[in-house]
Computed example of a mutant assay.
Amino acid sequence: MDHVDRTEIRPCRAADLPLLDRHLPTPGAPTRHADRFARQEAGTGTYLLAWRDGVPVGHGQVRWDGCAAPGVRAAVGECPEFNGLDVRAELRGQGIGTALIHAAEELTRERGGTALGLGVGHDNPRAAALYRRLGYGPVVAYTDRWSWTDPDGRTHEEADPCTFLVRDLTTPDA
């Protein structure tokens, strides 16, 4: 049986949050899963989860209002963005990330979207290669900025150089 055949992709449900926190913890950002689920509940995102044998093994979120970075918004407007893609390290290379991206593309098409974008850090050549293979092309360089709070309550500001890539969804799947 192919590994991807055992993988179920579906939107997050409230009951999934404790399992996400247990199996896909987000150190330094203990509310990240809940925040993404809240965005979904507000209708501005869809938080997709990959499951194997009842355990969450990957996730990513479609932000229907697009990337928040000003340079990206200037270049692509409110093109939906797929962000936060992550797969458990020991399962990478088995098609789970690709399945999540394809599910995000299908949801975007169902909503009438003709393109999907995503950002990739300059320090992540493996992800960049996957996105190129799936038909995503570079549009604009930008700096992804976010903050997180450590267990002692200190806030940390982060900034990563990235490239925003877009795929035209009116062409066949790569």
Rank of each mutant, 00 (worst) to 15 (best):
D150W: 00
A15G: 10
R109Y: 01
R145G: 12
P56C: 06
T7Q: 04
T7R: 05
R92E: 09
P27L: 08
I96W: 12
Q61F: 05
G135F: 00
R88C: 07
A34K: 09
T149D: 00
R13S: 13
A115M: 03
H3V: 02
I9M: 11
P172W: 01
G137K: 04
T163K: 00
A99Q: 10
L91R: 03
L20V: 12
R63D: 12
V57K: 06
D123R: 13
D86P: 00
A174Q: 11
A42I: 04
R92S: 08
A74Y: 06
A159T: 03
V166I: 08
E106H: 08
D173S: 14
R132T: 10
G119L: 03
G66K: 01
G97R: 05
T44R: 10
R111L: 15
P138W: 01
G95Y: 02
H3W: 01
V55E: 01
Y136P: 15
T114I: 10
V166M: 04
A42Y: 05
V140I: 14
T171P: 09
D53I: 03
S147M: 12
R132C: 07
Y131A: 13
A115H: 07
A99V: 03
T155E: 14
A129C: 02
D65G: 13
R13T: 11
T149E: 06
L48C: 10
G93Q: 02
T170Y: 01
E157N: 06
G60H: 08
H122A: 10
R167W: 00
A29S: 12
